Amino acid sequence: MPAVPWWAVFSAATLPVLLVIGWTSAAVRQPPGYDPWADTVSALSSYGMLDRQILVGCLAGLGVAHLVTAIGLRPVRTAARVVYGLGGVATILVAAVPKTDGQTPRVHGISAVVAFVALAAWPALATLPVPGRGRSGHRQGASRQDRPGGTAPRRSPADQAADRPWVLRPAVGGAASLVMLGLGLWLALQLPDGGSAGLAERLIAGTEALWPLIVVSVLFRWTRRRPTTAPG
């Protein structure tokens, strides 16, 4: 299994930090009428809000950190990394095209939806096995001598899952994606006039920022206890 580089751990660790600093600092600067439980995080970056550059900068940094972390997740299937990276790019677009007073630009809205869905879907995609890998991340071709005729032994999905860290097992990744998608559905039901839109957005954004840090931390330790192989 390819090793996770140190810079991916660093970028993943900045995700929750940037998110909390951004929405907390920007909210503190607003007049008393701002309600963090009802008003969305995106509203803090809209034109007319005080010190909107705080959240714009943090959102842009958040998107870049997601993208860098996706590049560093070498043990994860390429499809999952692409979807995760797409979520980072969409987050950058959310910051680049902020809301206006009372209106949401189409690019902002579409980018926000793509970001939330991509960042929620990649944990489930990450549980798919990397093609060409057998036990403990080694290429299956290396074990062909174990069977007559040079054929690699077939292993059950349960055995293959047991050889992977717990964050890449289908039950865990699938549950993480379902939780995030469920929070996203709750957010969609709260918009545009729901009384808990701010709370729902903060919960889903926080979950989508914490999960990459958990995955990278586990894989960083896992890959350093096992021999590395070239990506498949």
Rank of each mutant, 00 (worst) to 15 (best):
T228S: 15
A200K: 09
R202C: 00
G184L: 11
W186N: 11
Q145F: 15
S217A: 15
A176P: 04
G134T: 06
L183A: 10
T207W: 10
L181I: 09
L178W: 04
S177I: 03
S217E: 05
S196C: 02
R135D: 05
E201F: 03
A188I: 04
D193S: 13
P212F: 00
D193C: 01
F220D: 00
L210P: 01
D163F: 03
A142G: 06
G173I: 07
E201P: 07
A161Y: 02
L168R: 00
V218S: 04
A161R: 02
S217L: 15
A142N: 04
Q140H: 03
L191W: 10
T223N: 06
Q145N: 10
G134F: 03
R221S: 13
V167A: 00
V215Y: 03
V216S: 02
R164S: 01
P165A: 08
V172F: 12
P170S: 10
G150Q: 11
M180P: 00
L219V: 07
A200T: 06
T207H: 10
Q160G: 06
L189F: 09
A200E: 08
L203C: 13
W222P: 01
R169E: 00
P192K: 04
T229G: 08
L189P: 02
L181F: 15
L199Q: 09
A197S: 11
E208P: 00
R139H: 14
L219I: 11
A171F: 02
L183P: 05
P131M: 04
G150D: 13
L168N: 00
L213H: 04
A158Y: 06
G195R: 15
G141H: 11
R144H: 09
S177Q: 04
G149M: 08
E208N: 13
T207D: 07
H138P: 01
P192N: 06
T207N: 05
S136L: 13
A162D: 14
L191C: 02
A175D: 06
D146M: 12
Q145T: 09
G134N: 04
P212M: 00
S177W: 01
S143C: 04
L181R: 06
R164N: 03
T229A: 13
I204W: 12
P148H: 08
S177A: 14
L185T: 14
V172R: 01
P157Y: 09
L219M: 11
R144A: 14
A152I: 06
L178S: 12
H138C: 02
R169G: 00
I214R: 03
A142V: 12
G198P: 12
L213S: 10
A176F: 07
V215L: 13
R169V: 00
A158K: 11
R135G: 02
G149W: 11
G184F: 12
G132F: 10
L181K: 03
L213K: 07
G137D: 07
P165V: 09
W166P: 01
M180N: 02
I214H: 07
D146V: 05
V179A: 05
Q140A: 12
T223C: 06
R226T: 10
R147W: 05
F220Y: 13
E208M: 13
G149S: 09
V218R: 05
V167I: 10
R164E: 03
G206S: 12
S196R: 15
R169F: 00
P170H: 08
M180H: 01
